[in-house]
Amino acid sequence: MNISGNTIFIPGATSGIGLALAVELQARGNTVIVGGRRAELLERIAAEQPGIDTVQIDTTDAASIDSAAKEVLAKHPDLNVIVTMAGIMRIEDWHRPESFLASAEAVLTTNVLGPIRLIAAFIEHLQAQPDATIITVSSGLAFAPLKVTPSYNASKAAIHMLSESIRLQLADTTVKIVELEPPAVRTSLLPGQENSEFAMPLDEFVAEVVALLEAQPDAKEIQVERVKFLRYGEARGDYDQVVQTLNAADPHGK
């Protein structure tokens, strides 16, 4: 995708990576719409970030997605980029169903069904644009598992394969599929992660992502250097060592 001149909708961007990316993309000459569940956070963003539009959306609710999509497209008929940012991460213990079942259902609803429903809500509009992009958000943990977050790992592996698959199907359209693959980043995705020494500083991550988008407009995957340890363990032949290192180092890894 081009780094400027777009109209971009980022649901799940009231904090963390999503908000930081929204601010940077708006500064690069894009029209940006931020979506989130909490009205008070959206109001604060609108006050603190003039020029960024906001819309209330709950990506776990199909009706909310449909309503928000109609609102966004009515206000911004030139929308040509969506970033399926919304996601949750939960620590789970799979020894007993009461310790993981509800968590797993919530994670998969948010992290897998949410992006699928978002794409469904916008795909016909995007195909009518001369140049459009869907940015999906997986994780380094799609490629190497963190022991304490099984459902999150699985959800991000699903997003990776979904991205690969729909890229093939949409090759005959104007819609590009770009997969963003974060490493651990200093956000509140897990308790304490925003202060984790193992996680990448948020501003450094977003700066590198935007630089990669600018330098590689035809990229299929956006990978900062720090995620490649996880992303390519199997290809390098050191997958078992990657998994061991990951799980020995950081209980808050993304």
Rank of each mutant, 00 (worst) to 15 (best):
T174H: 10
L108G: 09
P50Q: 15
A154S: 11
G36M: 07
N195C: 01
S138G: 10
N6E: 07
T136E: 05
M161V: 08
V227H: 02
P97K: 06
D131S: 12
I177P: 14
Q216V: 00
A86W: 13
L118H: 05
Y232M: 07
I222H: 04
L230Y: 01
L79V: 04
A13I: 12
A184C: 01
A249Y: 00
S138A: 15
A104C: 09
P145M: 02
V224H: 01
A20Q: 12
E124L: 06
L162I: 14
T110S: 07
K228C: 10
G35K: 03
K147I: 02
D66T: 14
K156N: 02
I222N: 02
E225V: 00
Q49A: 11
N30A: 03
V175Y: 01
D61W: 03
F143T: 05
T187G: 11
H95M: 01
V55A: 11
A249L: 03
F122R: 10
F205V: 02
N30F: 08
L101M: 07
V243F: 02
Q223V: 10
V34A: 06
G87A: 09
A207N: 10
D131E: 13
A104R: 06
A27R: 15
E208T: 10
I57W: 06
G5V: 12
L113R: 07
G114S: 13
I17N: 06
Q127M: 12
E197A: 08
N6G: 12
P50K: 14
E48F: 03
Q26C: 11
S15R: 07
L25C: 07
I119A: 08
E124Y: 05
E181Y: 04
T187V: 06
F205R: 05
V137K: 05
R231S: 04
V243S: 00
I8G: 11
I119Y: 05
L108I: 09
K254C: 05
L108R: 04
P201Q: 02
K70W: 03
Q129G: 06
R44L: 10
A39L: 13
N111F: 04
I82R: 09
Q49C: 11
T173R: 13
G253H: 00
Q129E: 08
Q129Y: 09
T59D: 06
V242F: 03
G35Q: 08
V107D: 01
D61M: 07
K147Y: 04
I45M: 12
E208Q: 15
E71D: 11
S99Y: 04
T110L: 13
I119S: 07
M89P: 00
L101C: 01
G233H: 07
E92W: 01
A132S: 10
N80C: 09
V83M: 12
A86H: 14
V209Q: 03
A39M: 09
